[in-house]
Design a protein around this nucleic acid. Structure first.
Lengths: 190, 190
DNA sequence: CGCGGGTTTGATGATGCTCAAGCCCGGTGG
DNA sequence: CCACCGGGCTTGAGCATCATCAAACCCGCG
């Protein structure tokens, strides 16, 4: 049922079969169609989202009104707007499925209750959050040291399959360049 | 003794006076002179660092050999290289005091032992890490939507005192621009 | 078959970098 | 106390990278 999540948890902590029962009481299963939203700008982000299968992205509208993708998430990744969720204030972002996706949601208040019942999960979430922060630090480093063309090449060699999987304009925006310029770079780097 | 840390912890969780005793067994107090390092490139990052007073930065050497500052930390902030620390592998970064600073260090292995004795800290560190991740997401958003000049103006209005506190060339590098260009921007924005 | 969203192409131009030089100012030694 | 560093900040000219805009193209889908 939640096999990806359970095995993900067990990468980090000891987790009894009996705990799974308890955990599942707090989980809502979402079956999302491509382009469906779980968060829209102005709403308070309601949950932590874990992707069992599929793919999502987070984006906002910049001042020119175009979509600016700032994050993708794949199978076995958590995604949420931590700012909005933690402070329970309106979000600047949209979170959207970009493929048909099976996503597990744990509501903010349910999360607090769940942690009381399963305190060992506190550790799991600390570790997961630390890894996300490490990844974010690393991504920041790449942005500092690489040119746009190098960023694309680095991304392509790191996630070759993923480049196929998402539309060019989303990838361009995520990498911080225009679709036109990405097109040019791709021509040079077949 | 560790007043800033204790009150920081108590912003997030309930923490008994008796817990302070236990906590302090795992803490090493560092009195750093300006320009002193707690981490250098190639070393495995040894600890989580909490700043009681002073100021630190994290930087690396880019391909041209110049220092690229990617993070500052002030009083009551935690700083570490999560990638190096979590995976116990060599770091790409330097962490350096940029003022005389009082810093608390909790070694990686001590940290694990400490958590066993004080499991309530697991929650504290999860929440602190979530906040750091939220800040990182927000910073990423700014990098996407603002021009270099806007980034500087935003930073100056958000942290006016801080702009005074650090050398221009570090600030320039942190904001992702050259000292020359920062100088030009400052002339336009007195 | 035609529509429309996504991608490509090319011309033009702005943003922000590089390089070289000069300047300012605080620290050090004579 | 003064002279002389030397690191950091500033100035300006020239240039690379990358964005913008408009148009054409491509292709899947109704």
């Amino acid at each position: 049922m939640y096999s990806k999540l359970i095995s993900h948890i067990r990468n980090y902590i000891h987790f009894e079969d009996s705990d799974i029962e308890i955990l599942s009481q707090y989980i809502t299963l979402l079956d999302l169609k491509s382009k469906q939203f779980v968060l829209e700008e102005g709403q308070v982000c309601k949950a932590y989202y874990f992707i069992e299968t599929g793919c999502m992205r987070m984006f906002f509208h910049n001042d020119k009104g175009t979509e600016q993708t700032i994050q993708f998430a794949l199978e076995s990744w958590w995604m949420t707007d931590y700012m909005s969720l933690s402070n329970q204030k309106p979000s600047d972002y949209y979170i959207q499925a970009i493929e048909n996706s099976r996503v597990l949601a744990i509501g903010f208040h349910d999360f607090q209750k769940m942690i009381l019942e399963l305190p060992s999960l506190e550790r799991y979430f600390r570790l997961v959050t630390e890894r996300a922060l490490a990844a974010s630090q690393f991504r920041m480093k790449l942005l500092y040291e690489l040119s746009k063309e190098e960023i694309y090449k680095h991304f392509k060699t790191s996630f070759p399959e993923f480049v196929q999987r998402v539309p060019q304009y989303m990838l361009a925006s995520f990498l911080g360049l225009t679709p036109e310029y990405l097109s040019e770079i791709r021509k040079k780097n077949p």
